[in-house]
């Protein structure tokens, strides 16, 4: 094997370096693993597919966790940008084996990993969302957002607000949270004005900012004067709304900072009540088996109006009235 000289050498050398580094590391590292049963400190791991500052899905959960850190005595470990499902699975596995009390799998694509790992680590609690199923497991919590509710309210306001009666709605893929929000928005807009043209399209990607921006531009060139969109890639579309001075409705997180003059309102998720309930349950020894839904009624979803936007009082009042009707059950937004 003549070539093998080259290859053996570097491969062997590589292995040697790794072993060397392992030696160096182990001499200085301090073991941190501590397994305790009734935890005074709750060790919580968050695994989430996008960045924790995405002004959308991941940030909503991260911020809620942060705000509870002191009060609930949490040790928080975060793995963000885990969009590769198998990497996320490895991370969850690692957290589970390190004795974390709660692993939050903040992405519907992690569900089946949770399903398998929860069975393997019955003493670890898992929280999975957004999702409506605990797979019947006793150590899995599920959490979800009735995104169609806020979508409907904001769509209704959009229908009233639009002067040209052309509204653009952009999603990533027509599934899950995005499907609910965009569907609710469209229905709301048509309820406000049945003659409005509501364009709905999907880019095919949760992360492609350019595609979102192009879709938004396309809507604007077709005369849309109100836009909305879902997923962490909306920042591109909000940029278009800002430069073309078109009204924008946000979701998942208060997006006013992205375009202070053009964001009308945002449907903000507040996971604090859900997380509090989960922490309380875990401290009481209940590791799962419940599904929590944030809605307008229970305060987990809130329409955050942007004070920088001059929204006509009548439109705001109409929106708040629709929200009240959804809370009372007089209106049921489509799912």
């Amino acid at each position: 094997m003549n070539i093998s000289f080259t290859r053996t050498r570097w491969l062997a050398a590589g292995a040697a370096v790794l072993i060397l580094a392992a030696g160096c590391g182990s001499s200085s590292a301090t073991p941190t693993a501590a397994s305790s049963h009734a935890p005074p400190v709750l060790k919580v791991a968050l695994i989430t597919p996008s960045a924790t500052n995405d002004l959308a899905f991941s940030q909503a959960m991260y911020a809620a966790l942060q705000s509870l850190q002191a009060k609930d005595d949490l040790k928080i470990s975060v793995q963000d940008n885990m969009f590769v499902v198998s990497d996320a699975a490895n991370a969850m596995q690692e957290f589970a084996s390190q004795g974390y009390n709660l692993i939050i799998a903040n992405g519907s694509q992690y569900g089946s990993t949770v399903q398998q790992l929860a069975a393997k680590y019955p003493k670890v609690s898992f929280a999975w969302g957004t999702a409506g199923s605990t797979y019947g497991l006793k150590n899995v919590f599920a959490y979800q957002a009735a995104a169609n509710e806020g979508g409907y309210v904001q769509g209704y306001m959009a229908g009233l607000l639009s002067k040209k009666k052309v509204i653009g709605v952009i999603g990533p893929i027509n599934v899950g949270d995005a499907q609910l929000y965009t569907g609710g928005f469209k229905a709301g807009a048509l309820a406000a004005d049945q003659h409005a043209t509501v364009h709905l399209s999907f880019t095919g990607s949760f992360s492609d900012v350019s595609l979102m921006a192009s879709a938004a531009k396309s809507y604007v060139s077709e005369g849309a004067d109100v836009l909305t969109g879902s997923s962490q890639s909306v920042v591109g579309a909000i940029g278009v709304a800002k430069s073309d001075n078109v009204a924008w409705f946000g979701t998942q997180w208060d997006q006013s900072s992205l375009a202070p003059a053009d964001v009308v309102s945002s449907q903000a998720y507040n996971w604090v009540p859900v997380l509090s309930q989960i922490f309380t349950a875990i401290r009481a020894g209940k590791l799962g088996g419940a599904t929590y839904t944030i809605t307008l009624k229970n305060g987990g979803e809130k329409i955050e109006f942007n004070p920088g936007y001059q929204l006509p009082a009548s439109v705001k009042a109409a929106g708040e009235s629709v929200a009240g009707k959804i809370e009372s059950g007089a209106i049921t937004p489509p799912q």
Binding site: S108, Q109, Q115, T130, A145, I173, D177, L180, Q335
Partner: peptide, 13 residues
């Protein structure tokens, strides 16, 4: 059944 959250783009188990 993913009544509230909508379907996830995945195959079944």
């Amino acid at each position: 059944s993913f009544a509230v959250v909508g379907r996830i783009p995945q195959t079944r188990l």
